[in-house]
Simulated scan of single mutants.
Amino acid sequence: MLRSLALRMAENAAKRLKTDNGSPLAIGTHNGHFHADEALAVYMLRQHVPTYSGAQLVRTRDPARLEACHTVVDVGGEYDPSRNRYDHHQRSFGTSFPGRPTKLSSAGLVYLHFGREIIARRLGLAADEDNESVGLVWRKVYESFIEALDAHDNGVSVYDPTLLAAAGLQKRFSDGGFTLGAMVGRLNPNWNDPVPEDPAAAQAAEDARFELASTRIGEEFDRELDYYVRAWLPAREVVAEAFAARSDYDGEGRIMVLKGQSAPWKDHLYNLEEQQPDSGKKVLYVLYPEKPTPDAKWRIQCVPVAKDSFESRKPLPEAWRGFRDEDLDGISGVSGSVFVHASGFIGGNKTFEGVLAMAQKALAL
């Protein structure tokens, strides 16, 4: 498979983009062991920025060969956008994404400079159009995807290891180490894999592995980008409308109802609450139909204290938890009950009127 990929790469050389002097436009990065950050940096440029469509990839540490490249990422010891140089390993480097603390890797640098263009094109806008939606998605994709690669490549842990040790916290089990960085890393050859004796063949085999890794991490990036453009961003209007109408169901605005169809609401709810800190008490329960049909059952979900937290701002009453159907009807005093989860973070009712009654009763308990 790797050999066939290398052959296809060679066969496509004639189709690659040409520069003004007729030579292939080249993106340079280092050879040897590859990482997720340069794999994604190369993918973003070649697949999402028209200038680099079909660009040649040059993997080397030879300064003369790198100097001849149009663009260089993750090698060369230079960060200079005016010269298309995007390395982060030099001692003087300290650039981070606006509003975020993590030092950038080559993925973060390419995203910093080209991310807005990538997102604008995905939204069907002019490449240089910078409206609110472009900025929202640009920041969100960085925080949800790119920053993890920056942190991984710069050796930044999710939690402060000193504080973890001081608290005596240890993992209960192995999580398999399956991170975005590890996903790319495992595509490197094993230490005892056979290596072609011919240096050119050996480099071609290594480059083919890098191409696979770049495509793999790029596919995940595309899925992330498509989610935020096609699902997350349209949900903002839905949630904003529900947030504005929450006082219709509770005088203090603690119940929010998503009518018609459920949509991703957590990010947008927290953002709306931050933007309007004096708009009343925080939302405690979100109500939504299981599917967009008139006969759909309804869910009540507790708002977590933070997006990734398992702790709810106000869980459903302890006496309701773990019960279903008629048993739950009798305990809650609300007919049509379907269930309440054992942890109290979510429940259900056969009708909107029933799930609203559950929410109102839960507020009073």
Rank of each mutant, 00 (worst) to 15 (best):
residue 23 S to M: 09
residue 138 W to S: 12
residue 53 S to R: 07
residue 318 E to Y: 12
residue 353 E to D: 10
residue 97 F to L: 05
residue 37 D to L: 15
residue 114 F to S: 02
residue 165 A to T: 14
residue 72 V to E: 02
residue 20 D to W: 09
residue 200 A to H: 02
residue 210 F to K: 15
residue 180 L to K: 12
residue 8 R to A: 15
residue 66 L to T: 13
residue 195 V to P: 07
residue 217 I to H: 04
residue 232 W to V: 09
residue 148 A to H: 08
residue 335 S to E: 12
residue 365 L to H: 03
residue 245 A to G: 13
residue 47 Q to G: 01
residue 32 G to S: 09
residue 286 V to K: 09
residue 257 V to M: 08
residue 323 F to I: 13
residue 143 E to T: 07
residue 52 Y to S: 08
residue 285 Y to S: 07
residue 94 G to E: 06
residue 48 H to Q: 14
residue 238 V to Q: 07
residue 153 D to W: 01
residue 321 R to N: 14
residue 87 D to I: 12
residue 169 L to M: 14
residue 292 P to A: 03
residue 165 A to G: 11
residue 226 D to T: 01
residue 326 E to K: 04
residue 65 R to F: 05
residue 159 Y to D: 07
residue 249 Y to N: 07
residue 206 E to W: 11
residue 273 E to W: 13
residue 88 H to K: 14
residue 19 T to S: 11
residue 240 A to M: 12
residue 258 L to R: 01
residue 3 R to M: 12
residue 228 Y to N: 13
residue 45 L to Y: 06
residue 42 V to M: 15
residue 241 E to Y: 06
residue 76 G to H: 08
residue 77 G to S: 07
residue 157 S to M: 12
residue 179 T to L: 03
residue 105 S to V: 03
residue 145 F to H: 11
residue 161 P to R: 08
residue 135 G to N: 08
residue 257 V to P: 01
residue 136 L to M: 10
residue 10 A to E: 04
residue 124 G to C: 15
residue 12 N to K: 11
residue 352 F to G: 00
residue 259 K to D: 04
residue 364 A to W: 03
residue 305 V to N: 11
residue 27 I to N: 09
residue 259 K to I: 11
residue 58 V to E: 05
residue 192 N to K: 03
residue 75 V to S: 04
residue 30 H to A: 08
residue 328 L to N: 09
residue 194 P to H: 05
residue 89 H to S: 08
residue 158 V to L: 05
residue 103 K to H: 05
residue 252 E to T: 07
residue 260 G to C: 15
residue 251 G to N: 06
residue 138 W to I: 13
residue 270 Y to M: 14
residue 341 H to V: 04
residue 153 D to S: 01
residue 288 Y to R: 05
residue 152 H to V: 02
residue 61 R to P: 14
residue 284 L to Y: 08
residue 115 G to P: 15
residue 117 E to F: 10
residue 161 P to Y: 05
residue 84 N to Y: 08
residue 264 P to Y: 04
residue 235 A to P: 07
residue 218 G to F: 08
residue 4 S to D: 13
residue 285 Y to G: 05
residue 3 R to N: 04
residue 42 V to A: 04
residue 140 K to S: 08
residue 60 T to P: 04
residue 283 V to F: 06
residue 229 V to P: 02
residue 204 A to V: 10
residue 241 E to M: 06
residue 222 D to S: 06
residue 187 L to Y: 06
residue 21 N to L: 10
residue 299 R to K: 15
residue 31 N to E: 14
residue 180 L to E: 09
residue 309 S to W: 04
